[in-house]
Design a protein around this nucleic acid. Sequence first.
DNA 1: TCTTAACCGAGACGGTACGTCGCGTCTTTTG
DNA 2: CAAAAGACGCGACGTACCGTCTCGGTTAAGA
Lengths: 217, 217, 217, 217
Amino acid sequence: MTTHTRPSRDDGTGAPAERRDPRLDRSRTALLDAAAALLSESGIRGVTIEAVTSRSGVARSTLYRHFPNSGELLAAAFQQLLPPIPAPPEGGTPRDRLLGLVLDQAQQIEHAPTTAAAIWLATSGLSAELPADPVERTQFAVLRQRIIDRYRKPFDAVLRDCLGGVPRVTAGDIDLAAAQLIGPLLFNTMIVKRPNDREFCTRLVDDFLTVHGSPTI
Amino acid sequence: MTTHTRPSRDDGTGAPAERRDPRLDRSRTALLDAAAALLSESGIRGVTIEAVTSRSGVARSTLYRHFPNSGELLAAAFQQLLPPIPAPPEGGTPRDRLLGLVLDQAQQIEHAPTTAAAIWLATSGLSAELPADPVERTQFAVLRQRIIDRYRKPFDAVLRDCLGGVPRVTAGDIDLAAAQLIGPLLFNTMIVKRPNDREFCTRLVDDFLTVHGSPTI
Amino acid sequence: MTTHTRPSRDDGTGAPAERRDPRLDRSRTALLDAAAALLSESGIRGVTIEAVTSRSGVARSTLYRHFPNSGELLAAAFQQLLPPIPAPPEGGTPRDRLLGLVLDQAQQIEHAPTTAAAIWLATSGLSAELPADPVERTQFAVLRQRIIDRYRKPFDAVLRDCLGGVPRVTAGDIDLAAAQLIGPLLFNTMIVKRPNDREFCTRLVDDFLTVHGSPTI
Amino acid sequence: MTTHTRPSRDDGTGAPAERRDPRLDRSRTALLDAAAALLSESGIRGVTIEAVTSRSGVARSTLYRHFPNSGELLAAAFQQLLPPIPAPPEGGTPRDRLLGLVLDQAQQIEHAPTTAAAIWLATSGLSAELPADPVERTQFAVLRQRIIDRYRKPFDAVLRDCLGGVPRVTAGDIDLAAAQLIGPLLFNTMIVKRPNDREFCTRLVDDFLTVHGSPTI
DNA sequence: TCTTAACCGAGACGGTACGTCGCGTCTTTTG
DNA sequence: CAAAAGACGCGACGTACCGTCTCGGTTAAGA
C-alpha cells in the first residue's frame, strides 16, 4: 500500500493551519492511514468504521469527530490513495504531447483507486443523498474536485500551449477535448471492459487532430 | 413506476421454460414488482430484503430460493426497470441517423435507472467479489449484457447500414464508434456533471463524420 | 446464583401459552438466566446488554426482540431472582402468626434482590419515564405487582384469618396493617441503615396488637 | 427551580474557609446551580457531566477538580435542592405537635427532590460501590446524613419535649418512634404508590399515642 | 508593581454501552 | 410438502456519556 498524499496539517478545507491541537493531526493521520490501507487491501467494503478504528487504535468517538459518517471517511481514504496529478508532457510535437496525455490517463484509469473513486462518487450521487450545502466542503466534495482536476488540469496545460497561436482557447474547448479524448477510455473501462491499448489511444489522438488540428499543429 | 419488461416466465437463465411450478412464477413476479417499485421510489438503498419481502408478501426463504443474495435481486430489479432498447432511427441521411442515435443515448443516460444500473455494475466490480463462474449466468451478468447491448445494438444496426458500401465493417469499427460517440456523453454525466445538450451531440457526430465519413456518406 | 422462578413458557403477560415457537423460550430462558446471574454477581450495573448477550450466547437483535430496552430486561432479571412468596405462618396464636409474618418480611428485606428490586423500581419512577400505557403489561409493571404482592399477600391470609370473627375486614384495614408493620422495617433498612432484629419486630407486632387487637385475639 | 441552600464557601468538608482563591467558589457555585437546575428540570438523568459543564460554562477539568465523579456531583445537586429542615411545631398539645410533625414529613415525601435523593442514595448503595473510606467526607456521605437528619431532627425536638417528664428518653426510643411514624409513609409512597392523606397520618399518630402515650400526654 | 503559579475554558481522546438496521440461515407451522 | 412467517446469529452503524488528558490564556497572590 502506498499513500500518495503526504501527511499534511491541511484537512482539505483550505483553512490556514495556524495553531492547532497537534492531537487532531495525530489521530486524523492514523485514521487516514488505516482507512487507506484497508481500502487498497480489501476494497470499498473493507473500509468499515470498526475496521478503521481497531486498526488505527483511534477511538470510535474520535473518528466521528473527524468524519461525520463512513462515506466521508471513505472519500478521504480515496484522496489518500490518489496519485498526484502527473506533470503534463512537455517536449515534442503537439501530437506527441497529446498522446502522452491520453496514455497517462489511460494508465490512471487502469489504476484501481482512481477509477474506483470516480465510480463510487457517481454511485453515491445516485443512491445516497449528497450534502446539499455547497459551502460546506466535505471530503466528498473535495474528492470530486480532485477527480475532475485529474482529468482537467493536464488538458489545461497542454491545450493552452498547443493552441497558443490561436487567439482564444475557451474553457468550452478544453471541456470538449477532455470529453472526446477521455470519455472513450472511460467507456471502454466501465461498460465494455475492454483495455485501452496504445493503438486505441493513438487512434483517439489522431482523430482528434484530424478534426481540430490547425495547420500549425 | 413503470416496468418496462413484461412479466415473463423466463428468468434470464435461458433455460427452457417448459413445465414449471406456477407458484414459482407467482412469487418471482411479486418479488420483482416489489423490488422494481422500491428501486424507483427509494433508490438503490431502498431495495432491502426486508422491504421487498414485506411489500411483496413473499417470504424470506422464498426470496432466497429465487435470488442467492440481495445483489442479484437488485440486478433483477434493474432489468425490470430498463426501458426496451429503442429501435435505431431508420430514415434520413446517415448523419441524421447517427445524430438520432446519439441523442437517444444521451436521453437514456439522463434516464436514472439506466445510468444507475451501469454505474452500480461498475462499482460492484470494484467493491464486491464478482461471481467467478462465467457459466452461471447470474442476474448480475445478465444485467451487464443488457447494459452493453443497450449501447452496442443500435450502432450495429446503423453503422452496418451506413457503411454498407464498404466491404467490411469489423466489430472493432463498431466498438470504436461506440466509444467515441457514447464515451463523451458518459464522461459529461459521470465526471463533470454537465448535461449532454443537442449542440454537444451534434458536434460529436460531425466530428465523427469528419474523420470516418467516406465520401459516400 | 439461585433462580427462584422455574423456567416457564409464560412470559408474564398472562397470555395462554398455547403453541409457540420453542426457540422463543430457549433464547428467552438463556437471556434471563444470564441476566439473573449477572445481577446477583455484579449488581444492577453488571446487567448490561453486552454482558448478557455475550454470556448467554444470544444475539443482540434477539435480545431486543424479547425486551424493548435494558430496563425491561433488568426487571425480568429481578423477577427471576425473587424468591417465591413464603407461605404465611399457619399455626399458633394470632400474635405468633403476625410475628412470624413480620420476621419473614424482615428477612426478605435483608435479602438483597428483593430490596434492590423494590428500590430500583422506585428510582426508575423518578429518573426515567415509565411506560404510560397501563394495558401493556411490561416486565416493569409485572415486577412492581410482584413486589406489592410480596408484601400484601401474606397479610391477606393472616389478617383475614385472625379477624375472622369480625364481620368485615376491608382492604383498607389490610393496607394500614401492612404499612404499619412493614413500613418501619423499610425505614430502618433504607434510611437509617439499621438492622431489623427480632426485638424490633416483636415490638412492632405487640404495639400493633395493643391498638388493633380485639379481645378475641 | 428554587435552591434552598444559600451559596456558601463551605463545600461540606468542614474545612475552615479562611483564605481561598475566589475563583474556586465562583466555579463551584456555577456548577451547583447548573446541576440543581438540571436536576429539577430533567430529573436524575438530566444531570450529566456534559450538560452541567455546558450550562454552567465551567470546564470539564474544573468540574473534576471539585467532584471526583458524577455521583458526587449529583449528591451535591441534591443537597442544593433539599429544603431546609422545617422547624418542629412548637405550640399545642403533644398530639397536635406529633401530628404536625408527621404531616410535615408526609409533605416532604411528596416533595420530589427529597424522596428522590433518599431513594437514589439507597439505590447507589446497591448498584454502585460506595466510597469505602469513611474519613473522606464525600458529598455522598454528607447527603446521607442530611437525609437522616431530616427525619431525625424534628423527632429529637418534639419527643424530648413531650416526654420531658419521663426520666430518660433514649436514642432508641426516638429511633423507634421515627420508624413507626415515618416508615408507613415511606411504604405508601415507595411500594404501593398510595398518597399519605391527613386521615392516614392522624391514624398513625393516634395509634402511636395509644401505645406510647403516658397519661400525661 | 511585577512575576509566577494556580486556575481556568476548551475540547480531544480512549472507552463502554446503547438501540437500530440489514443480512443470510434456520426452524416451525400452516394451507 | 412447499410456502409464510419469522426467530436467530452476526456485524456494522451512529449516538451519548464517561473520566483522563493536553492545550494555551487569565488572574489572583506573593515577592
